[in-house]
Design a protein around this nucleic acid. Structure first.
Length: 439
RNA sequence: GUGGAUGUAGCUUAGUUGGUUAAAGCGCCGGUUUGUGGCACCGGAGACCGUGGGUUCGAGUCCCAUCUUCCACCCCA
């Protein structure tokens, strides 16, 4: 296949046989977020480059080597969003959302773009669901968004995930900690891997989650951030934990989770799973109290999380979680002859007005082939329309699963289908009641 | 950006030490008395063997390059 006809590296097509699964999951997430007061916000896919470079952090990998940046025809430097938080913060400041009632709670679903080398659970275009909460400085807010992320994952049937939390303190206490960390690692400088030698200068906290056995062994003995938190941060973290425990949410404090975006402070957390390859984080987030002020808004505490939709789907697939089936064709109208075809079109139109999915032949096929098609697409009912039916004004509606036929007037097809569906629904209800009694 | 694996019809694969018109299953289309789907049988369409070079009388098979996909590192959702 010529390269021009192929999907761009690291992008994915979601075909009709899968798209309903995504739709189901996305709607579920929005629905659950709404229970916590989060309402959807939609922001552009691209922003001025500085929105990301300044706020995600000049030194981060995301900004340094992963952004899709280009000049538009007006000479502006534009970047496809590598994440959604920065753009959402820009929006809520600019449009005055945070000038209204606080906390302001928004959630989103959208594509993100990062120029990375694709692998399991990592694409160049991927999709995130996320929430952002503005104006809530209380530790209860931290616990609330964690509870929300957890409820989403549990509701969708994800199993075997664990919650890891940490506090990376505020600017003040982090300064002391980084100094202590640097001092500690300096003592082991020669043993560290090459990238970690580099990290020692740029961002010593990153050494903590290096996967090299040597580095992680050294890191195990490193000072932990929680010992360096100022009184305020310490109290905040303790309260977050207290809130989680009060809600029965099990967590593990992992002093090594750090997050790769610069705007985080205090609480950070991740939901991790061993079932999506090396990319174990399904959902990650935390507090970013300084970001709104940094972006020119009024000093406002804030927090949120992002959840990778493709990673979530991978998890669901690997765990064989059954999602609801897509809707099927309610009625296939097979027709023979010109006047029957016209009548078939009319019946379909009536059915659709009643909210049914109704199909008829568009390929000029014979009766047999039409029914074959009806079978392939899983049509629930079919009728055959020919001269006989047109003359007497009656058709037989066939249940494609059982083969049972039910006669009715041509004009009464929608009513008859409604009736049959109702009976079928009652039947399965009775069955489940019976089964319930047995059990 | 670094490393490892991969690439033959829509899908899953076969293709012997390089040798004529590249094979099968599934899927697709059609047929088996122009009035009935699922089963069976029959037939058909569909592949410049990822791409570009090279070696050779001859390359799907060998060599080089390049791209894709997959997996790992880095980093993140």
């Amino acid at each position: 296949m010529a390269e021009i006809n192929r999907a761009v590296k690291g992008t994915n097509d979601i075909l009709p046989d899968k798209s309903h699964n995504y739709r189901f999951v996305e709607e579920k997430m929005l629905e659950i977020a709404a229970l916590y007061g989060f309402r959807e916000i939609r922001v552009p896919v691209f922003e001025h480059t500085e929105v990301f470079s300044r706020n995600v952090g000049e030194d981060t990998d995301v900004v340094q080597k992963e952004m899709y940046t280009f000049s538009d025809k007006g000479g502006r430097s534009i970047t496809l969003r590598p994440e959604l938080t920065a753009g959402v913060v820009r929006s809520v400041i600019e449009k005055g959302v945070i000038a209204g009632a606080l906390p302001a709670k928004v959630c989103y679903i959208g594509g993100c773009y990062r120029y990375e080398k694709p692998q399991a659970g990592r694409l160049r275009e991927f999709h995130q669901f996320g929430v952002e909460c503005f104006g809530a400085g209380d530790p209860a807010a931290d616990a609330e968004i964690i509870a929300l992320a957890r409820q989403i994952l549990l509701t969708l049937g994800v199993k075997g995930i664990s919650l890891k939390i940490n506090s990376i303190g505020c600017e003040k206490c982090r300064k002391d900690y980084v100094a202590a960390l640097k001092n500690y690692f300096e003592g082991h400088k020669e043993e560290l891997c090459d990238t970690c030698k580099d990290r020692l200068e740029r961002n010593p906290m990153r050494i903590l989650d290096c996967k090299s056995p040597v580095c992680s062994k050294i890191a195990a003995g490193a000072p932990v951030i929680t010992d360096y938190l100022c009184d305020d941060c310490k109290e905040h973290f303790a309260s977050v934990k207290e809130n989680l425990t009060a809600q029965g949410i099990i967590f593990e404090v992992d002093p090594h989770i750090v997050r790769g975006l610069d705007y985080y402070n205090k609480t950070v957390f991740e939901f991790v799973s061993g079932d999506i390859g090396a990319q174990s984080t399904v959902c990650g987030g935390g507090r970013y109290d300084g970001l709104v002020a940094k972006m020119g808004g009024k000093d406002t505490p804030a927090l949120g999380f992002g959840l990778g939709i493709e990673r979530l789907m991978l998890l669901l697939e690997n765990m064989n979680v059954q999602l609801p089936e897509d809707r099927k064709c309610d009625l296939y109208v097979a027709a023979m002859g010109g006047s029957a075809k016209l009548a078939a079109g009319k019946i379909c139109a009536e059915m659709r007005n009643e909210g049914f999915e109704a199909l008829c032949d568009l390929c000029g096929r014979g009766l047999k082939a039409q029914l074959k098609y009806a079978d392939k697409i899983g049509a629930k009912y079919s009728v055959v329309l020919g001269d006989d039916e047109l003359n007497c004004g009656k058709v037989k509606i066939k249940d494609m699963k059982t083969g049972d036929e039910h006669e009715c007037d041509i004009t009464a097809i929608p009513d008859k289908i409604t009736d049959l569906n109702l009976k079928a629904a009652l039947g399965s209800l009775e069955e489940s009641v019976l089964n319930g009694e047995k059990a």
